[in-house]
């Protein structure tokens, strides 16, 4: 019996080892990096984002033409670009990372043209261009519409599609068809569809639930309904207790509104 146990153990360990001898295994590395990205709760933590971006970039050594790696690098770049927005926007760095994001997304969609998440990011990255090249108005509108159309066609119920669409609407002036009132139902739609959404596997994107709750809270802050806002912040923290977006950004806006 003992012998048998040991043999099995030997066999098992040998098996693990043989797998691990290619420790540069693609899906393992992807899972690790995706988990690390998930763990970044504060999306303005630039140093952490740069590190994870590097992790993904190194995985390219294993699969040179992998659409998903390009997607994740693009996602990191997009968040790094956001981290430069803030009160004193650094338009040079916003442009640098946002353009890199767009390049990577284009590569991703060239390699796999039916991955809705890439088009959803494209919508977002494209709208960032207003920050540094508003003179290319026509191109921004044209590319934005194209990405939106494809994303909607591929996954009309994707919660991140609603989230990005809503965020763009939120920051568009009322005169140009945007504003809080139009954005809010979209954020709520996003929140609803997050409830039932399941990513395909561990390496698929799974971000945004806390942002949906946080943005709904911000809408309420703007409407001066602070109790409702607090309610949504709590809802968001329930699903992502360490969310830097909720704790660092939304809470701050809420507290400031409360002081007034």
């Amino acid at each position: 019996m003992k012998k048998l146990t040991l043999t099995v153990l030997f066999f098992l360990i040998a098996l693990i080892n043989s797998n691990k001898s290619y420790s540069d295994d693609y899906s393992d590395a992807m899972k690790k990096a995706a988990k690390k990205l998930d763990a970044v709760q504060d999306i303005s933590d630039r140093a952490a984002l740069l590190k994870i971006r590097g992790d993904f970039e190194r995985i390219l050594q294993l699969k040179k033409n992998e659409w998903l790696i390009n997607y994740y690098m693009a996602y990191c770049d997009l968040m790094i670009a956001w981290s430069y927005m803030g009160e004193k926007p650094d338009s040079e760095n916003i442009k640098k990372y946002n353009e890199s994001c767009i390049d990577l997304l284009n590569r991703s969609t060239d390699l796999k043209d039916d991955f809705a998440e890439a088009y959803i990011l494209k919508m977002s990255a494209n709208s960032n261009r207003w920050q540094y090249e508003p003179n290319k108005m026509n191109d921004i509108i044209a590319k934005g519409t194209e990405a939106t159309d494809i994303a909607k066609k591929l996954e009309p119920e994707n919660p991140r599609y609603f989230l990005v669409d809503a965020t763009i609407t939120y920051y568009t002036p009322e005169n140009f068809g945007g504003g809080v009132d139009k954005a809010m139902p979209l954020f709520e739609k996003s929140w609803e569809s997050f409830k039932t959404y399941e990513p395909k596997d561990e390496t698929y994107p799974n971000w945004g639930k806390d942002q949906a709750a946080g943005m709904i809270a911000l809408c309420y802050v703007k409407k001066d309904k602070l109790d409702e806002a607090k309610n949504w912040i709590d809802k968001g923290l329930e699903s992502a207790p360490e969310s830097g977006f909720l704790k660092g950004y939304v809470m701050k806006q809420y507290d400031e509104a409360k002081k007034k």
Partner: peptide
Amino acid sequence: NGANVVIEGTIDGATAD
């Protein structure tokens, strides 16, 4: 800041701080 280094063909490497 953020430059990437890797031993080609592996994922051994790092990101510059």
